[in-house]
């Protein structure tokens, strides 16, 4: 019997629950050289701002135990090039992939500007993911994600700038994640997405220098999974809108754990660096689990944690 892998996220549906994590999958173009990216639940592209952004000095990444730190600093082509440049949106439209555009800015006006531009040319865009949680850009970014009042202001303003579904990407660098999920819901978000990376540091003792030029970076990969699971669980208790879970997912069972904790969909990030095919293997792994446990549809396991 065929298992129903589709998921309903309220304002939009996905063919399966597995998305790519923003910043780990480029603009889809890169991995489409290896496989058909339309097989994924959704492709979430790297952050787009109204302006061209150079990003941080190098080194930008350091490997850590079962994880990595990054401080890429949201290097990006800006909205004009993204909407019209060869390897960006025009290319994505030809693939038939479900595309979610991650957006960011340094001010509320910036966020609204990108949202409005996507709203003007929405062909091929399924939803916007508002990144208010990048730990690696000094202005804006994380400030919006660690203060519920600012979060409400920016999301309410973006809500007025577009009719596209809005996913808010939450920062894990807060004490009570449920409050932030609720603030996003109250401001008009259609879904919340977590976790972004956890702020961390890595030091080279021999040279007495930080391993990444930005000094601090965001931790991701298997090392963060237990923290991410707990946060997804708490967020899903705090809101009625869909929760999308991520943080260290490497295989189908990891993804199932997030769904049991309350996530309606999941995303694969760092694992793609180790294995470019990881997102596809996660889809197969979930399906395999569902078969083994005689579920007919993937939505049956959402929040099915037995306590």
């Amino acid at each position: 019997m065929k298992i129903d892998m589709s998921v309903d996220l309220g304002k939009f549906k996905l063919k399966n629950p597995v998305m790519t994590a923003s910043g780990t999958f480029g603009y889809g173009y890169e991995y489409n050289q290896l496989y058909d990216i339309s097989r994924l639940g959704a492709v979430v592209v790297k952050g787009i701002a109204p302006f061209v952004s150079n990003g941080n000095p190098t080194p930008r990444v350091a490997e850590t135990a079962s994880g990595m730190l990054n401080a890429i600093g949201l290097q990006g082509p800006g909205v004009d090039k993204f909407l019209h440049g060869d390897h960006y949106m025009p290319f994505l439209r030809t693939t038939g992939a479900t595309v979610i555009v991650n957006i960011w800015g340094k001010s509320i006006a910036d966020y609204c500007e990108v949202a409005r531009r996507m709203d003007e040319e929405p062909e091929g865009i399924t939803a916007l993911e508002v990144n208010i949680s990048c730990p690696n850009v000094k202005a804006g970014g994380v400030a919006f994600g660690t203060d519920t009042k600012l979060l409400n202001e920016v999301i309410s303003a973006v809500r007025k700038s577009t009719t596209l579904p809005l996913i808010v990407k939450l920062s894990p660098n807060v004490t009570k994640i449920g409050d932030f999920a609720k603030a996003a819901e109250d401001a008009g978000a259609d879904a919340v997405y977590l976790i972004n990376t956890l702020t961390g540091m890595a030091i080279n003792a021999e040279t007495r220098k930080p391993k990444i030029a930005n000094l601090t970076g965001g931790l991701s990969g298997p090392a963060v999974k237990p923290v991410a699971l707990r946060m997804v669980y708490e967020a899903s208790k705090a809101v009625t809108i869909p929760v999308i879970g991520m943080g260290g997912i490497c295989n189908g069972i990891d993804a199932v754990e997030f769904m049991l904790a309350g996530a309606k969909a999941v995303a694969v990030g760092t694992a793609t660096f180790a294995d470019p095919y990881a997102p596809l293997k996660v889809i197969d792994g979930i399906e395999d689990y569902l078969k083994r446990h005689n579920f007919k549809s993937v939505s049956e396991i959402v929040g099915a944690l037995e306590i």
């Binding site: 910043g23 780990t24 999958f25 480029g26 890169e30 991995y31 050289q33 290896l34 790297k46 990003g55 190098t58 080194p59 930008r60 990444v61 350091a62 990595m68 990054n70 890429i72 290097q75 793609t272 660096f273 470019p276």
Partner: peptide, 16 residues
């Protein structure tokens, strides 16, 4: 070359 991550142009770790 620089310390690399994805190796395929997707993550912007290896920039020069």
């Amino acid at each position: 070359d620089h310390v690399m991550c994805c190796g395929v142009g997707a993550c912007f770790a290896c920039v020069v």
